[in-house]
C-alpha cells in the first residue's frame, strides 16, 4: 500500500494505492489520525488506485467517519473501483458515507 497525502485549500487528500488489508490498515489509520491530531477536519479519500479492501480497511473508515462527525468535520470518498464499491455496498456503508464519482466532485462538496 502507498499513501500520497496533499493539502488543497485546507482539504487533506489521501490517495491510497494497492491494498487496505489487516496489516496495511494499521499504517493507514495511523496516517489519518496524525492528521486529525494536527487539527485537520476535512478529508477526501481518493480511492482511484485502491485495488483491494477488507473489513480491516472498512473499520478504519467507519471509525474516522464517526470521529469526524463528533468533531464537526467531514470525510468524502471518491473514485471507487467496482470491487471496492461492492465491498462498501455489502457492508452497508453506502448509507453512511459520502461517495463521489471523482476527485473534483469530492472537493466541491467537502
Amino acid at each position: 500500500m502507498e499513501i500520497i497525502q496533499e493539502n488543497v485549500n485546507g482539504v487533506e487528500i489521501f490517495s491510497v494505492k494497492g491494498s487496505l488489508d489487516s496489516n496495511t490498515s494499521l499504517e493507514f489509520e495511523s496516517r489519518i489520525y496524525s492528521t486529525l491530531e494536527n487539527g485537520q477536519k476535512r478529508l477526501v479519500l481518493n480511492l482511484e488506485n485502491l485495488e483491494y479492501i477488507s473489513s480491516a480497511g472498512i473499520r478504519v473508515m467507519l471509525k474516522t467517519t464517526k470521529d469526524l462527525k463528533r468533531m464537526d468535520g467531514n470525510i468524502i470518498l471518491c473514485s471507487l473501483q467496482d470491487y471496492v464499491k461492492e465491498v462498501f455496498d455489502i457492508a452497508g456503508f453506502d448509507g453512511y458515507l459520502s461517495i463521489e464519482k471523482n476527485l473534483d466532485e469530492a472537493l466541491q462538496k467537502i
Binding site: 472498512i58 465491498v87 455489502i90 457492508a91
Partner: peptide, 11 residues
Amino acid sequence: KRGIGGLGIHF
C-alpha cells in the same frame, strides 16, 4: 450504533 463486529464473516 454501527459496530464493525461480524463484518468480515458477512463478507
